[in-house]
Amino acid sequence: MDVIIEQYFDVSLMIDEFDPVLDGFVQTILLSIFGGVLSLLWGLVLAVLRQLPGRAFAPVRAITIAYIDAFRGIPLLLVLLLISGSFGALALEGVIPRAIGIPTFLGKPDPFWYGVMGLTITYGAYMAEVYRAGIEAIPNGQMEAARSLGMSHGQAMRYVIVPQAVRTVIPPLLNDFIALMKDTSLVSVLGFVEVVQAGRDVQSEFFNSSALTLGALFFLVFTIPLARLVDRLISGQQARFQRAQAGPA
């Protein structure tokens, strides 16, 4: 028992190595924010593209569906390695712009931005499916009413359908965000020091896992309240749904 505590809960080591692990976690947060916001936006774009009506847009729908299937079907780790392995070379050969191939925005090194790209590309696909479920759950009558008032499909989506759909899918989107936050740890394989890598560095130096435990605790400080928030949002929605079904007062 003492050995377990010593290996995982060595408090003095946690205190000594607190700063590097915290710095790593700040990077985790930054990756989560950039990746999260961009994938929320990209997912919405994908969902709208997937919904474009009519024969003229069939190729757009087909490509979007193929994209979503592909990136929900391969591991994020693979995507990250595909990007980091060759984007640099592609940029140097002029195939892609240097700003994308060797990105250094805001002073962050390229593995950070490869990580953001990988997270956005992959989680965008997951979020697109969440948005789609929300959009398809909106009763047809809403679109019919909007179109009957003269709105175009685009206007109906923008002012009537999507605002409703987004409200209802906030809980599953938040769940996907929590998953994304945890998956930022994969960016460590690109040589970027976020919280997991910081913990591993301490682990290999001291043969002790306490810094990793500390990292885990940092995660829980965020993920547990977020999970409770999701629960509250869901039960709030249930209550309103039941009131709406019961009919007006």
Binding site: P139, G141, Q142, A145, L149
Partner: peptide, 24 residues
């Protein structure tokens, strides 16, 4: 319509003014 199909995320006023602003 039989099912009203009002836009739930907008007020009554918002429902009646939305199409006027966006379509007209």
């Amino acid at each position: 319509f039989q099912q009203f199909n009002l836009f739930p995320q907008r007020t009554v006023l918002g429902n009646v003014s939305l199409a006027q602003e966006k379509v007209l």
